[in-house]
Simulated scan of single mutants.
Amino acid sequence: MATKSKAASSVSPTAQSTPASDTVLRVTQLRSGIGCKQNQRQTLLALGLRKIRQTRDWPDTPQVRGMIHTVRHLVAVEEVEPS
């Protein structure tokens, strides 16, 4: 029977979901998801983008960065300081 290593168990389950900094990413949809792959359309919806020129602010986390990378050809991203 294999046991878990001490290093793997000491990592917090929320370590990657906490923001790395106070930076906020402003994501704006520039192009339509029509004709794109299913996962790209679903990623736009998960980001809260349903219309062109719609903007949402998201904390700068690895998960959000990955979602933005999936639809990088459809959106524009800018870093803003939280208000």
Rank of each mutant, 00 (worst) to 15 (best):
Q38L: 15
T3Q: 10
V75W: 03
T61V: 00
Q38G: 12
R41W: 10
M67I: 04
Q63Y: 08
P62K: 03
T28Y: 06
C36S: 15
V80E: 07
T14K: 12
K37P: 10
V80T: 09
Q38V: 15
K37N: 14
W58A: 02
V80N: 02
P13N: 10
S12I: 03
M67V: 02
R31K: 15
Q29C: 10
C36R: 15
E81K: 14
T23C: 12
D22I: 07
V27K: 02
L47Y: 01
A2C: 10
H69T: 12
I68T: 01
R31C: 08
K4A: 12
W58G: 00
P62G: 04
S21A: 08
L30N: 13
G35T: 10
G48H: 07
G35H: 11
A20N: 10
V27F: 04
R72W: 09
V80M: 07
T61K: 00
V77Q: 00
M67F: 06
A15K: 05
S83C: 09
K37Y: 14
Q38A: 14
Q29A: 11
A20E: 12
D60T: 02
T18E: 13
V27G: 00
V64R: 02
P13F: 06
K4T: 11
G33F: 05
A20P: 03
T18G: 12
G48C: 05
R50S: 11
E78M: 06
M67K: 08
Q40K: 11
K6E: 03
T43V: 05
